[in-house]
Design a protein around this nucleic acid. Structure first.
Lengths: 339, 339
DNA sequence: CTTTTTTATGCAAACCTTTGCATAAAGTTT
DNA sequence: AAACTTTATGCAAAGGTTTGCATAAAAAAG
C-alpha cells in the first residue's frame, strides 16, 4: 500500500509545467515568475513534498553524512565526544554514522572500507589501541577524502587533528601529588601503542624529575584496558612491593576506580596512606568514597572542534594547504582521594 | 585532484562492451559468457572498481541504513543496547545512524523528520521521557515505514516491540529486600511518563503486598533523572522521615550511587542500617564499597532482538500482519549493599 | 509594425546502476 | 537449406533532481 512519495514531476504534471520549473520554483530561482512560484510552493506544501535526498546525493556526489569511528561507545569519554560532534554537525543538516572498532585493527579497517563505499563526506577517527599501521588512513588521504583524527594520534598521517594536552594533565596530577607530600608516586600506565598513554607517562616522569625524584621503573605498571577490572591486578602488584607507593596516578578514572577498590580491600586508607588520582572526570568519579581526584578533559569541546575542522575540509572546494593541530587543555580536579 | 572513481561505464568503454554487460558480468548473470566475465572482473579489480551505492540507493529506493533514536548515548544502558544493534546489523551490510533526543520531545520529532527525509529503511526508537504524544510515530506507521520500539513503550502505537520485564525485576529486588529482613522498604521512582518507571513502581508495590506490607506513600519519592546527582535529594528526603526506611530500591544504578553517597554522608552504614538496590547493572556498580546490589538487564540482547525484528520488517515485501512483542527477563544480582 | 530586449519556461543531459525486451550471431534440428 | 532454438550482448528506460542552453512569449524600443 506504500504510496510513493510525491515527486517534483508529479507537481509539474498537476500544474501543467515542466519539472525543471518546479525545481527552480522551489529553489527560489530568480527566473521564475512570482505566480508560478506561489502556485508550486502551495501545491508542494499541500502534497507534503519532500525532496528525494537519494537523487540529490547521486547528483551532487555528496551524502551529507560523516563517518565517526571510535574504539568504543560505552565509555563516557567517547560518548561525550560524540555528543559534541552531533551538536556541531546536526544544525548543518549533516548526519553522522557511528561505528566502534572495539579496539580492533581489523574491525577498524572494515568500518573505514564500509563507510568509504557508502561515500561518507568525511571521517572523524580515533584509532584503536591495536592500530600501528596507518595504511588504511593513508588510502583516505590519497583519495582526498577529508579526515580528522582526534584524541589518539597517528604519527605520519598528515591531516587536521585535535588532541588534549595529555602531558600537561599528567604533569599537573603528579605535581599535585608531590606537593601534597607524596614521596613514592606510582603510575598505572595505559597501553603504550596509544599516543595518549605515552604522553601521560612522559608527563609523569617529567613531573618527578622536576622535583628531583628518580623514576623507579618498579612503580610503573601497564594496564591492559580502561575498565575498573583492569586496575585491580596492577594495583595489587604495586601494593605487594617491598616499599609500596604512597600515591598512584592511573591512566584513567576506570582504572582508578579499580585501584581504589583493591586498595580498600587491602585495608589501606585513601588518601591518608595512599593518594589516588585518575584521568577523564567520569561522572561517577565524584560519588565514590572518597571521591576521586582526577584530570578533567574537554571531551565535548574536542568533539565540536574536530567536527568543525572536518566540515571546513568538506566544504573547502579548493585545497586547504596547511593542516591544523589543536591541543586542548585539561584541568586538575582535586577531590577526596588525594590530600 | 580528486580523480572520480571508476564507474561501470569506464570499464565498459575500455573493454568495448556495453555497461549492461559489465553490470551483468559483475553480478554473475548466467547469460554472460565466461570469457567476458573473466575479463570484466579482472579489469574491475585492476581499476579498483567499487559500485556507487548512491546510484543503487536511488534505483532500489533503499538506503541500507537504519535510524536509531535514543534519549541519550552516554549512559551505559543505551550504549550497550546500541552495541547489540550494531553487532546484529553490520554483518548484513546495514549501517545505523544514531541520534540522541536528550529526553526532549521536540528533538525527537526533529530527528525522526530528518531520518525520514534521508530515507532510512526503518527506525529503532526508545522515546524520550517527555514524549506523551505519539503522532510523530503514527506518521511512520501510516507511511508504512518499519519501526520497532524498545525499552520504553508507546501505548497505542502498534508495531514490533522489545522490552525488559521491569515489573518482574522490581518485584525480585523488593522481595529480596523483604526476605533479608528489611521492614521499611522505600522506592526512589523514575519519571512516571516512562512505562519502565511505572512498571517498576508496580512491581515494588505488588511485592510489598505479597508480604502484607502496606504501601506507605511517604516511602515513594520520584527522582527527576537517572544520574547520581538525581539520587541525592530524594535520599535526603527519605532519611529525614520520622521513621526512615531500612531499604531503598532505586529506579536505576545511577540514582542508587547517589543514594549510597548521601547515606554514607549521613553516617549511616550500608547494608547494616539501610540496604540499597539499583537497576541496570552498570559496570561501575560492583566497584563501590559496598558493591551495589542491582537488577541486571539484557541490554545487548535487547538491541540484537530489536534489530532483528526491524530487519524482518524491512525485508518483508508482503505485509506481516501480526506484531510481535517480546519481553526479556532481568536478573537479580546480589552484592554488598544488601544483606 | 518591425526589431530588439527581457522574461519565463522547457528540453535534455548528467549522476550510476539495473533490467526487461529486442536482436544479432551462432548452433541445432528437420 | 530453411526453420528454429540457444547464447551473448546491446538498447533504453527508470529512479528524482539540477542546470546549461535553447526558445517561445511578452514587453520595450525604434
Amino acid at each position: 500500500m506504500k504510496k510513493s512519495r510525491t515527486t517534483i514531476t508529479e507537481i509539474a504534471n498537476q500544474l501543467g509545467v515542466s519539472p525543471s520549473t518546479v525545481s527552480r520554483a522551489l529553489n527560489d530561482h530568480p527566473a521564475i515568475s512570482k505566480k508560478t512560484k506561489k502556485a508550486v510552493v502551495k501545491l508542494a506544501r499541500k502534497l507534503n513534498y519532500q525532496p528525494n535526498l537519494l537523487a540529490l546525493n547521486l547528483l551532487k556526489n555528496k551524502t551529507n553524512t560523516i563517518g565517526v569511528v571510535v574504539p568504543e561507545i560505552t565509555s563516557y569519554f567517547f560518548s561525550s565526544v560524540i555528543n559534541g560532534i552531533q551538536d556541531m554537525v546536526n544544525p548543518l543538516g549533516v548526519n553522522m554514522i557511528i561505528s566502534q572498532s572495539n579496539e580492533s585493527y581489523e574491525e577498524e579497517k572494515n568500518i573505514i572500507q564500509t563507510f568509504t563505499s557508502i561515500r561518507v563526506d568525511g571521517f572523524l577517527i580515533s584509532p584503536s589501541s591495536e592500530t600501528k599501521n596507518f595504511g588504511h588512513l593513508k588510502i583516505l588521504t590519497d583519495n582526498n577524502i577529508p579526515l580528522v583524527i582526534f584524541d589518539r594520534d597517528c604519527e605520519g598521517i598528515e591531516v587536521d587533528k585535535v588532541f588534549v594536552d595529555e602531558y600537561n594533565g599528567a604533569f599537573q596530577a603528579v605535581e599535585h601529588l608531590i606537593q601534597t607530600g607524596c614521596k613514592r608516586v606510582a603510575h598505572i600506565a595505559g597501553q603504550q601503542t596509544l599516543s595518549t598513554a605515552r604522553h601521560r607517562l612522559k608527563g609523569y616522569k617529567d613531573a618527578l624529575s622536576k622535583y628531583n625524584i628518580p623514576v623507579n621503573e618498579k612503580y610503573i605498571v601497564e594496564s591492559c584496558g580502561f575498565a575498573p577490572e583492569h586496575g585491580i591486578d596492577p594495583t595489587k602488584k604495586l601494593l605487594a612491593l617491598p616499599n609500596p607507593p604512597d600515591a598512584i596516578f592511573t591512566i584513567n578514572d576506570g582504572v582508578a576506580i579499580g585501584a581504589m577498590y583493591a586498595i580498600k580491600e587491602a585495608g589501606i586508607t585513601i588518601p591518608e596512606e595512599i593518594s589516588v588520582i585518575g584521568f577523564d572526570d567520569d561522572p561517577h568519579s565524584s560519588f565514590f568514597k572518597p571521591s576521586l581526584s582526577t584530570v578533567w578533559q574537554p571531551t565535548y569541546e574536542m568533539g565540536v572542534l574536530a567536527a568543525r575542522f572536518l566540515m571546513r575540509r568538506i566544504n573547502a572546494s579548493n585545497e586547504i594547504s596547511s593542516f591544523r593541530i589543536e591541543t586542548l587543555l585539561p584541568e586538575l580536579v582535586v577531590r577526596g582521594s588525594s590530600r
